[in-house]
C-alpha cells in the first residue's frame, strides 16, 4: 500500500488507527510465555495430546452487517476470505476468519500485519462497521492429538463430537470456569482463542486434563496426530 493511500485512509476515517508494534529490538511477551519457559521439554512416548501456544498473532475483531455488500465484499477483498456463515470459518495460508456473532468475526494471521490489514480493511469497507485490534488481549492455544477431543470433553460443555463439530466449525463456549472460542482446524486438531488474563488458568486446566493421556508440550511433527483409527480406538470414554 502506498504512503499516499495510507495517509488518505488515516485522514478520511473518524477512527483512531495506531501502529501498536514497536520498530525493532523490543521483546514481546506472549500471555503464555512463562508457561513455555517452565514447561518440561521431555515429551512422553506416543503422546495422546499436544498443547502449544500459537503466540503473537494478529487478532482483529471485525464488526459489521453481513447483508451490507460493502462490508462483506470489502472483507473478502482485503483478506481474500469470504465472510463465513454462522459458526463457520474460512482460512487460507496466512489468515483465518471465524464467525463470532451475527455482526462479529475474528480475523487472525501473521503477527506483524495488524496495521496493514486494518488499513486495508478500512480502505475496502463501507457503511457501519468497526475494526478493533485485540491482538494484545488474546492468544491462540493449539490442542492436538488422538485424545484432544477427550480433553475438550472434560473442559467444555459443548458437544465436540464429529457429528456436531466438523472441521472448520467455530464455537465460543465455556472452558473450565472461563471461556474460549474453539475452532476445529483438523480431524485431531483444535485452535482455542483465549483471553490473555485467563490464559494461564486455561493452560493449567488443559495440562491437568491431559495428564492421563500423555501430554506433549511440543507441536506434533507432521502426521503424528493424523491417525483417525488410532483415535477412535483410544477413546473408550467417548461415543
Amino acid at each position: 500500500m502506498s504512503e499516499a493511500i495510507n495517509k488518505a485512509v488515516l485522514e478520511s476515517t473518524q477512527i483512531a488507527i495506531m501502529e501498536q508494534l514497536p520498530e525493532t529490538g523490543v521483546p514481546a511477551r506472549s500471555p503464555l510465555a512463562h508457561q513455555q519457559q517452565t514447561a518440561s521439554r521431555t515429551a512422553p512416548e506416543n503422546p495422546g495430546v499436544y498443547l502449544w501456544e500459537s503466540a503473537l498473532k494478529t487478532h482483529l475483531a471485525l464488526r459489521g452487517d453481513a447483508n451490507n455488500a460493502d462490508f462483506a465484499n470489502g472483507v473478502e477483498a482485503a483478506t481474500g476470505l469470504a465472510l463465513p456463515e454462522v459458526l463457520q470459518s474460512n482460512h487460507n495460508n496466512e489468515w483465518a476468519l471465524s464467525w463470532i456473532a451475527p455482526d462479529e468475526w475474528l480475523l487472525t494471521g501473521p503477527g506483524d500485519q495488524a496495521l496493514a490489514m486494518e488499513m486495508s480493511l478500512r480502505e475496502q469497507l463501507g457503511g457501519h462497521y468497526a475494526v478493533i485490534n485485540v491482538g494484545g488481549g488474546q492468544t491462540l492455544v493449539r490442542l492436538a492429538g488422538p485424545r484432544a477431543r477427550s480433553v475438550l470433553m472434560k473442559s467444555c460443555p459443548y458437544d465436540v463430537h464429529d457429528r456436531n463439530f466438523p472441521v472448520g466449525k467455530v464455537v465460543n463456549t465455556v472452558l473450565g470456569k472461563s471461556q474460549a472460542t474453539l475452532r476445529r482446524v483438523g480431524d485431531d486438531e483444535w485452535e482455542l482463542v483465549v483471553r490473555r488474563s485467563f490464559a494461564d488458568y486455561i493452560w493449567r486446566w488443559l495440562v491437568d486434563a491431559s495428564q492421563e493421556y500423555r501430554l506433549s508440550l511440543e507441536q506434533p511433527t507432521q502426521g503424528a496426530s493424523k491417525n483417525r483409527a488410532g483415535r477412535l480406538q483410544a477413546s473408550p470414554v467417548e461415543n
Binding site: A61, R63, D103, E104, H128, Y129, A130, I132, N133, V134, G135, G136, G137, Q138, R195, R196, S197
Partner: peptide
Amino acid sequence: LEVYMNTVTDHWA
C-alpha cells in the same frame, strides 16, 4: 444507534 462495542481490557497494559 450505529455503534459497536468490544472489550479491549486485556489488550492494553
